[in-house]
């Protein structure tokens, strides 16, 4: 079988071009996965991948996934912050694939916190 080539992106690009005009509510939710040394060693890449896969699978257009560095609580990694527009950011800790899926389904999609994984709600400052 022939290997995939860069030009094979054509189809996706065409699809994206068509849909771009009708995209609405871009960025309703922002998910930030903490990717410091601690996070990566604890499995942050799998968590981020889980979120990206769910977005692709469910064809969701208004959720952004991004990364940040160490949040200073290395023992509770992997961590992720979920920000729904108009709501306080929620920081989740001790994540695994299963918990990430639950957070995606309940919080990102339905707007309900997954209480057992919450580390803190609201912004915080580090001195």
């Amino acid at each position: 079988m022939a290997k995939i080539k860069i030009e094979d992106l054509d189809k996706i690009a065409e699809d994206v071009r068509r849909k771009m005009n009708i995209r609405e509510g871009a960025g309703r939710v922002k998910i930030t996965v903490h990717m410091g040394t601690c996070g990566i060693a604890a499995g942050a890449r799998t968590i981020m991948n889980t979120f990206l896969n769910l977005i692709e699978l469910q064809n969701i257009k208004d959720v952004i996934v991004t990364t940040s560095g160490c949040a200073g609580l290395c023992s509770r990694e992997p961590m992720a912050t979920v920000e729904v527009v108009g709501q306080a950011p929620v920081k989740y800790a001790d994540l695994n694939e299963e918990r990430a899926k639950k957070i995606f389904e309940d919080h990102v999609m339905k707007g309900r916190y997954v209480e057992e994984c919450v580390l803190s709600i609201g912004s915080e400052r580090i001195q």
Binding site: I12, V16, L52
Partner: peptide
């Protein structure tokens, strides 16, 4: 990718998925 597809955001989930497949193959 940016050169061939200047109007496509590179971090779109389906573009990322393409890149993952492209590299691993």
């Amino acid at each position: 990718i940016r050169e061939i597809y200047p109007n496509i955001p590179i971090n779109l989930v389906n573009v990322l998925s393409f890149i993952r497949k492209y590299i691993s193959e």
